[in-house]
Amino acid sequence: MYRIIKRNQIADNIYEFWINAPHVTKTGRAGQFVVIRIDEHGERIPLTISATKGEDVRIVFMAVGKTTQQLAALEEGESIRDIAGPLGTPSEVKKWGRCAVIGGGVGIACLPILARELKAAGNEVTGIIGARNEGLLLLEDELREACDELVICTDDGSKGHHGYPADILKEMVADKALDAVWIIGPAIMMKITSFATLDTDVRTFVSLNPIMVDGTGMCGSCRVTIGGETKFACVDGPEFDAHQVDWDELMNRQRTYTGQEKESLEHYHEHKCECGEHQ
């Protein structure tokens, strides 16, 4: 059992949890993730390592379905059954020169640890974060500290630049002010944003989020096509060269269980009312 040390709601429907997991924090690095399972009946779901402090790891998630909603309903001091990790290959952190880290929606959560590592490796780091509206922005203060510069975008103009991170990225590319960029967010956002660096020398990484089961390379659920080759995102990735990704396949595979996910959530809400266990 792994204890929830701290719990915060940090944006609309987005939560930050600190969980005690010394085996994860010992070597956990930017780009890696954990797999959690709440209880005996739970699904194994992957969540990115957003930060580590001592023996505690931070995860940040949006309560979208059964598992993330159930997680969000847990309190400080309660425990989850399993947390495995760190999993995946760490980000390619080295001295690139000028880097940008771009987060869309809950993908912003992945940036602090990455920005810090890139800075420590001697890079100049620009953070660009985007969300639909102000209420969905997160970790602003922390990122302002971790990056040399932070640009905020909202789709509706409620804060910062009225538009998308892709707009800012395009400008940076045009100014030739960039060596490497990480784009992390929903698949469609990563796909579209990465167009900005097509046919340039800017190394462009994205963090893919296919459906996973074990997260250790044993099942092949997470397979993605990269440059025409099948890769397992949980061991070969989750970060890959954006311009090699078969995005349509990824998005199709993500939708595999749409019907069951809905059923699972309905079952959860019904069951919750009956037993009154979780409020």
Binding site: H41, G42, E43, R44, V213, C219, N252, Q260, E261, H267
Partner: peptide
């Protein structure tokens, strides 16, 4: 091969044996 609905035996068996997908939605894994 990467269409939805193509499984390795490992994935299919893991979903059922380890994660009890045969008892979905009582167990969460589909």
């Amino acid at each position: 091969e990467n269409f939805s609905g193509v499984y390795s035996a490992n994935e299919f068996l893991t979903r059922v044996n380890l994660m009890h997908a045969d008892r979905f939605p009582e167990f969460d894994t589909p």
